[in-house]
Amino acid sequence: MTRTNRIASLLAASALALAATAAGAQEMMKLKIGTEGAYPPFNNLTADGKLEGFDVDIAKALCEEMKAECEFVTQDWDGIIPALQAGKFDAIIASMSITDERKEKVDFTNKYYNTPPAIAVPKDSDIKGVTKEDLAGKAIGVQGSTTHSNYAEATFTDSDVKLYPTADEYKLDIANGRLDAVNDDIIVLQEWLASESGACCKILGTIKPVPEIHGLGAGIAIRKGETELADKFNKAIDAIRANGKYKEINDKYFDFDAFGG
C-alpha cells in the first residue's frame, strides 16, 4: 500500500505546484490589491465585469505613484481580512474603515477618505428619526462585518438588524420591502438613490460618527508588521493629495472633498 502514499504525495505535490506562486519578488514591487467590487461608487463591477470606482482609481493612482505593478483581486467582504492574512493579496483598498477592532488583525495606512454614515428608508416610510427609539421594532439592513453593522448592532438593540454579504443585497431587499431601513455610508446611499434602483427610497438623515465604532475614515489595510509597505502607501497618499491627482479623482465622483477634516 505504499503506492497509495506515493500517489497521494505526488498528487499533493502537483497540486501545490499548480497553486504555488512565489509572491516574494519584492524588488519588482508587484502588488496584489484586494477589493470587493460590490460597493458603488467606491468599488464595483461594470456589466462587462471590470472594476471601477473611487477606490479603484485611487489604488491605480497610488500604484503609479509607487511605481508598482498592481493587479486587482475581488474578494467577498466577509472574507477580505482573512484573505489578506492568508496572502491572497497584499493590500485591501476597499473603503475599509480604520477601527481598533480591525487593527488587532491588520495594520492600516493613514486614511484616504472619510465620510459620515446615514440611514435610508422607503419613500413612504413613517419613521421619524435615526435614534434607537425611532427604529424600535423595525428591520434594518446593513452589510455584515462593517462599521455600520457594528454600529447598528450596538445601537438599534430593539430592532431586527439583518446582515447582508454585500450592499447590493440589502438594496434589493429594501426595494422588495423586506427591510424598513438601511444603514451605510452616505456616499454609497446617495449614489444608489440617484440610480434607477434607488427610486424606492430616500435619505432619512445622517448619523453622528462614533469614533470608537466608525473609526478614523477609510484606510488601506496591509498584513501586520509590514511597515515598509505602509510607509510607501502613506507617502503615495500624501503625494497624490499634493499633486492634484487626488482632487482629479475626487471631482470625478463627488462635488465635495471626500478626504474629510
Binding site: 497540486a15 497553486a19 504555488a20 492568508a86 496572502g87 491572497k88
Partner: peptide, 26 residues
C-alpha cells in the same frame, strides 16, 4: 482559508520566504 493559513505558517516555520496561494478554483 484554513489550508492556506496552515501551509504558509509551515513554510514560515521552515524559513521559506515564499507564500503559497490557494485560489478559489484550487
Amino acid at each position: 482559508f484554513g489550508v492556506q493559513i496552515g501551509i504558509n505558517a509551515l513554510l514560515k516555520l521552515l524559513g521559506s520566504g515564499t507564500t503559497v496561494e490557494i485560489n478559489s478554483f484550487v
